[in-house]
């Protein structure tokens, strides 16, 4: 039954996506990403029913799949981790949907998406971000409530290591991944000096659970051109090449259900009209059970599009298996 639901959800997602964005993908890279994404989805969807007794769901320990990051990949709030999303072990398939809301003094950021973890090895994710400029939109001459939307397609592959069980080794769990981002406001991005409205981030993430200290550490190096994560496009007068950026997370496991921690994420500052700052947050993630978790955070996103000190509240709900 659960397998059927996975199949149904994936088919539905694909159908829905084609209905909404069928012709939106442009460029070879996008086509490749899309082919790869749906190729793996299709493989999962066809293999899953055929091997019904082999595929299991929900074998991981509570919270060890992480939560859904703002870009849809499994991780913390602002950072992507090397763990695969969902609760499936290497015998099965897990997945989840998330909705995230960030309220800032002058803006609002919303994200929703879905992700699947396959055999605890591969993660595929989709997120749609909406960056609502609210009153700032009017002040910037864009119009009240002008909203940038961005689709993010993610693929992550675990290369080596077991973050949870390798407690006698220093080797972390390491994953490599890509996030292909497509912003729907190309004209405005060009007008503010952004070079492109699409871009692909590549990253290497390392996650280690220090169980004897109840600490989880993550470090990720991301090659990116993205301005404000891509919400303001990619590249600009101050930088048009990929630069290596770092994102780090520390989480303390307070109880079986509750992790509290902090994150830091460095960013390039490619645009000329406004300086871009690094991001940081303090978060608490609470798992009600293996199907539902809530993450609340205080985020400090610095200056965004000339508006100073954008610090605010982040709340994210995640449902899955």
């Amino acid at each position: 039954m659960r397998l059927y639901l996975v199949y149904f959800a994936l088919t539905n997602l694909r159908h829905r996506w084609f209905m909404e964005h069928g012709s939106a993908f442009r460029g070879q890279l996008g086509a490749d990403m899309r082919r790869m994404f749906f190729g793996v989805l299709l493989a999962v969807a066809t293999v899953a029913p055929a091997a019904a007794d082999e595929i299991k769901t929900g074998g991981k320990l509570l919270l060890t799949g992480g939560v859904s990051s703002i870009e849809g990949s499994g991780g913390g709030g602002l950072a992507t981790w090397a763990t695969t999303t969902g609760y499936a072990t290497e015998e099965g398939v897990g997945g989840n949907v998330h909705g995230t809301y960030v309220t800032l003094p002058d803006f609002e950021l919303r994200s929703w998406g879905a992700a699947v973890g396959v055999f605890d090895r591969v993660e595929l994710s989709y997120a749609r971000q909406s960056f609502d400029t609210q009153d700032a939109g009017a002040a910037l001459g864009l119009g009240q409530g002008f909203t940038f939307n961005q689709d993010i397609w993610g693929v992550k592959v675990v290369v080596i290591g077991d973050a949870v069980y390798d407690q006698d080794r220093l080797l972390p769990q390491i994953a490599v991944g890509a996030q292909h981002k497509r912003n729907d406001r190309g004209a405005i991005i060009a007008a503010v000096g952004g070079e492109d409205d699409t871009g692909t981030d590549y990253y290497v993430a390392a996650t280690k659970l220090l169980l004897d200290r109840s600490l989880l550490l993550n470090g990720t190096v991301r090659m990116t051109k993205a301005n404000q994560g891509g919400l303001l496009g990619f590249g600009g007068p101050n930088g048009s090449d990929y630069s290596a950026q770092f994102e780090g997370s520390v989480a303390w496991l307070a109880t079986k259900r509750l992790a509290i921690g902090a994150e830091y994420r460095s960013k390039p500052s490619n645009l000329g009209f406004a300086r871009e700052d690094d991001w940081m947050d303090l978060f608490a993630a609470y798992a009600l059970n293996k199907n539902l978790s809530v993450t609340a955070a205080w985020v400090s996103l610095g200056d965004i599009a000339t508006f100073r000190d954008q610090s605010g509240f982040y709340i994210s709900l995640q449902a899955g298996f």
């Binding site: 949870v164 069980y165 390798d166 407690q167 006698d168 220090l210 200290r213 109840s214 079986k256």
Partner: peptide
């Protein structure tokens, strides 16, 4: 206590292999 549990689990975890 949870953190004490984790210290013990850290000893047992590598046995998974």
């Amino acid at each position: 206590p949870f953190q004490t549990q984790n210290r013990f689990l850290a000893k047992l975890a590598p046995m998974k292999r």
